[in-house]
């Protein structure tokens, strides 16, 4: 199991968090069709690190971007979601 360092609450057990989707699958409202389709229905799905959106659902309920390795599960960065983090 993972410990995720919530930017607001500190290090918490994974049970308190829900995975939502990857950062590159957020669909900007003005995206052209091909970009929207790619974001909705495809993933890079790397066998390595990726930027993921998690939510501290059973805690402060805030969204955050977690940079996490898909094989080792090592978390190298957690950032609170804000305009400068998401497209």
């Amino acid at each position: 199991m993972m410990q995720i360092a919530c930017p607001h609450c500190g290090s918490r057990a994974q049970q308190e968090f829900m995975y939502e989707r990857t950062v590159d699958s957020v669909v900007p409202l003005d995206a052209p069709t091909d970009k929207a389709m790619a974001a909705l229905f495809t993933r890079t799905n790397p066998r390595g690190p990726d930027d993921e959106i998690w939510r501290h659902t059973y805690g402060c309920r805030a969204w955050m971007v977690v940079t996490r390795h898909r094989v080792t599960h090592e978390i190298t960065a957690v950032r609170a979601v804000g305009p400068e983090v998401l497209p």
Partner: peptide, 17 residues
Amino acid sequence: HSGHVAGLAGLRLPIES
């Protein structure tokens, strides 16, 4: 590992592992 192997050919798939 579909995503990984298809990635070698430059494809993005509707798959998450």
